[in-house]
Design a binder for these strands. Structure first.
Length: 272
DNA sequence: ACACGCGCCTGATCGC
DNA sequence: TGCGATCAGGCGCGTG
């Protein structure tokens, strides 16, 4: 599932491949992934050039404008569980392609098997009202602010890390990886952790996110990058998807439990 | 303010 | 071409 690193990979590719290109076509075989009617979305975006792409957590915001910067419009994209955006030579859209963009002859597709993702027109590309409740990006937030936002939450630390209102970007995969690296069990109440441990968790979260970005993200279900290629981070995973397998640090069997409604894998010996 | 459960979706996998 | 049940999970929303 696309988390911060996978979204970053797509955002970079959009910038590199489409910046300056004009949107000349927009079709939506399944308009249900659009928050506004197709005609509204077309009216806002067609004939404008893609000028920038911002990312906050797992949200991308693509900005369009006419030549000279007039009449800007912004499309916020969230891939949720199975959303993909890609450009592939000779690709013939299957039944899961819900939106197709045409950039002066360059076709770009939005594909989403579970239809959880959303494409939303927003007014403000940097601080859209729709993201008012979403916290700062996990890679950008400073320790004091993050500490303040974590507060004295009694929920398990994993639930707090998954809460995009605290800081945005972590999902189930990287939370488990981060907590393994920090040596903390996902079930531990956040309020029971001292500042040194919380600081270590934040440091490890950033470390694993950056490393995953460098490896092009993780492909578990069906994430592919902009060019249709899977990410390379999967073989770096220490715990996610490895319940029952030996811990890469101590050799003991990894345990599985449910935290915040999500499957969670940890090492009973290395994580206390 | 915070914690928790549900619904949205479809494909893969499992049990019989 | 067996089929129904279960699981996977991000997020918005309703409830307590």
């Amino acid at each position: 599932m696309p988390e911060l690193p996978e979204v970053e990979s797509v955002a970079r590719a959009l910038r590199q491949n489409l910046a300056g290109r004009r949107l000349t076509g927009l079709e939506a075989p399944f308009a249900g992934v659009l928050d506004q009617p197709l005609r509204t979305t077309r009216r806002a975006l067609l004939d404008k050039r893609l000028v920038d792409v911002h990312r906050r957590g797992k949200y991308m915001i693509a900005s369009f404008a006419r030549d000279g910067g007039d009449d800007p419009a912004h499309l916020m994209i969230h891939l949720r569980m199975t959303g993909q955006i890609f450009i592939l030579d000779g690709y013939r859209p299957d039944k899961h392609v819900h939106v197709s963009f045409d950039f002066e002859g360059l076709p770009v597709h939005y594909r989403d098997v579970r239809k959880f993702g959303r494409l939303t027109l927003v007014e403000d590309p940097l601080a859209p009202a729709a993201l008012a409740h979403v916290g700062p990006d996990m890679l950008a937030v400073r320790w004091p602010e993050w500490r303040r936002r974590v507060g004295s939450r009694t929920a398990p630390i994993k639930a707090v890390l998954l809460d995009q209102g605290v800081a945005s970007g972590l999902g189930n995969i990287y939370v488990d990886e981060c907590l393994f690296l920090a040596g903390v069990r996902p079930t531990t109440p956040a309020a029971a952790l001292d500042d040194a441990t919380l600081r270590e968790i934040l440091r490890r979260a950033r470390q694993v996110l950056r490393l995953a970005i460098d490896h092009g993200g993780t492909t578990f279900l069906n994430f592919t990058d902009f060019y249709g290629k899977p990410g390379n981070f999967r073989r770096q995973l220490r715990v996610y998807g490895r319940a029952g397998e030996p811990c890469r640090a101590c050799g003991g069997a990894l345990a599985k439990t449910t935290v915040a409604g999500r499957t969670s894998v940890y090492c009973p010996d290395c994580q206390v």
